[in-house]
Design a protein around this nucleic acid. Structure first.
Length: 491
DNA sequence: ATGTTC
């Protein structure tokens, strides 16, 4: 199916709606939030998937595809679905395999002229200190490689707060992580031994695919709201920033695999129709639903801790390379967002406040100013939203809006979104050629694998500026700054 | 995304 011949009603200049009459079983309409240019690029698979999502029990208002949407496992990546807590279902496919994949952004006191001459040394040292690549584990000489299973259970239940108690975080870091880096319903007894075994030696590792650690610069003209930017510690053009993008590694992947199977079996018991096996889901209030949420929360906490430990090591490497104290270099956390997660939140539905299970898959929470879940220092600003772009283009910091609360359950895009499969990208460019081309352009990239690098070429992604344009037009994100890569450690 | 086909 192509998206061209799908009946869509234009709701406003950036919103199109597919009615419930489109597919048997749809309980709510599906909505696309896109610009005309992005709408043309939406794959038919996204339409199939988002209208499948609209059939799930308990879904509220509409199933949403964001401007970076592309085909995923069951649900599209760049999708939001909010379910009623009593009548609704929870779906592992609505979270994704990489549970709590997310991104965080740090400011520095350095400028481009300080970093350019040392970018090679910096990237090479970061590559040594932050293990990257498929299946990568910590080496045995790393203290964290030797933690016991019971300590790991504490990490799973306490997330980034474990990091704070154990010397891997500054006080303010934890405040500036979604959910303070700790999902409260995490219960490590709901995580299989196999999942724990896979995660035990992966705390502080980057992983592979589109995961990266990037050193960036603000180019002149790329600060869109300097007053708000200043409050996030953005001082002006040429300032250097850093981003860390990764998730819960093999541990989250195993939790997702375990519970997809559990849910599929349980669906027969609960007499739930199976429209697509990849959409396996169970009642939120069922034992299986509660267990999945508890295990997903553990994987989320592992990912928060993972990004925190990487941050700790990034600060150390910067200090060594620039021969300055960490504090002098700033390296302050702006914020850490989760973009593959399900959360219990309160939203307005038909004028009533309701608790919902909000699935965000390849979607970022973006709460407005004064929302109770925003750190005190950002109350007037709204929640920071971080959009990681491709390694060849740029990334963005935005803030959450009241409009997003009204139209997308306080959600917005998560990045550029792929336009082509990994295999297709690999056929079009070689990793070594891309690496050389990028270094000539002034982006010092170092990847764990050359084919892996080729899969992440800029042309394999949508135009992030256009994605941000869609967020601006629809009002579900307020742009603060664009950052351009200087160096990148690629998983 | 992922010990990339348990």
């Amino acid at each position: 199916m192509s998206s061209n011949n799908v009946p869509m009603k234009k709701i406003d200049q950036s919103t199109w709606e597919i009615p419930v009459s489109f597919k048997k079983g749809m309980r709510v309409p599906a909505r696309l939030i896109v610009t005309p240019a992005l709408k043309k690029g939406i794959e038919g698979g996204v339409i199939d998937q988002i209208t499948n999502v609209a059939t799930l029990p308990g879904i509220q208002k509409y199933a949403i595809a964001l401007p970076d949407a592309h085909r995923g496992y069951g649900f599209p990546i760049g999708g939001v679905a909010a379910m009623d807590m009593e009548e609704g279902v929870i779906s592992p496919g609505g979270v994704g395999f990489d549970i709590n994949c997310g991104v965080r952004m740090l400011t520095t006191t350095l400028e481009e002229r300080d970093v350019r001459p040392k970018i090679k040394e910096l990237v090479e040292k970061l590559f040594q200190r932050v293990p990257a690549g498929v299946g990568v584990k910590l080496s045995h000489d790393n203290f964290l490689a030797s933690i016991s299973r019971s300590v790991f259970d504490a990490v799973l239940e306490n997330g980034a707060q474990w990091c704070l108690e154990n010397g891997y975080a500054r006080d303010e870091d934890v405040r500036r992580i979604e959910s303070q880096g700790k999902m409260l319903r995490a219960d490590s007894s709901k995580v299989s031994d196999k999942a724990k075994s896979r995660g035990l030696r992966q705390l502080g590792t980057l992983g592979s695919g589109n995961h990266y650690l990037e050193i960036q610069v603000i180019k002149p003209g790329d600060i869109f709201d300097s007053e708000m930017g200043a409050k996030f510690g953005l001082t002006g053009p040429y300032q250097v920033t850093a981003m860390i993008h990764c998730g819960s590694r093999g541990m989250g992947h195993q939790v997702a695999s375990d519970y997809l199977r559990t849910c599929l079996t349980a669906m027969r018991k609960y007499n739930l129709p199976i429209i697509d096996q990849e959409l396996a889901s169970v009642p939120i209030t069922s034992r299986e639903g509660e267990d999945y949420f508890a295990a997903m929360s553990c994987a989320s906490n592992m990912a928060f801790a993972n990004r925190q430990i990487i941050t700790h090591n990034v600060r150390k490497v910067f200090s060594e390379v620039f021969h300055k104290d960490e504090e002098e270099l700033g390296l302050n956390l702006i914020y850490d967002v989760a973009h593959n997660i399900a959360k219990i939140e309160e939203h307005n539905v038909d004028g009533q406040k309701k608790k919902l299970m909000v699935h965000r898959k390849g979607a970022t929470r973006g709460f407005p100013p004064h929302h109770p879940e925003i750190p005190e220092e950002y109350k007037e600003l709204g929640q920071p939203i971080i959009l990681g772009g491709s390694m060849e283009t740029s990334s963005y910091l935005l803030t959450g809006t009241q409009k997003a609360m009204e139209v997308s359950f306080g959600s917005t895009a998560h990045g550029a979104g792929r336009t082509m499969s990994r295999s297709r990208a690999k056929k079009q460019i070689r990793g070594d050629f891309l690496q050389r081309k990028m270094r000539e352009k002034g982006i010092y990239v170092k990847g764990a694998s050359m084919p892996g690098l080729a899969e992440e070429a800029g042309f394999a992604y949508k135009d992030i500026d256009e994605v941000v344009n869609a967020l601006k037009i629809s009002g579900i994100g307020h742009p603060i700054v664009r950052v351009t890569p200087l160096g990148n450690v690629k998983g």
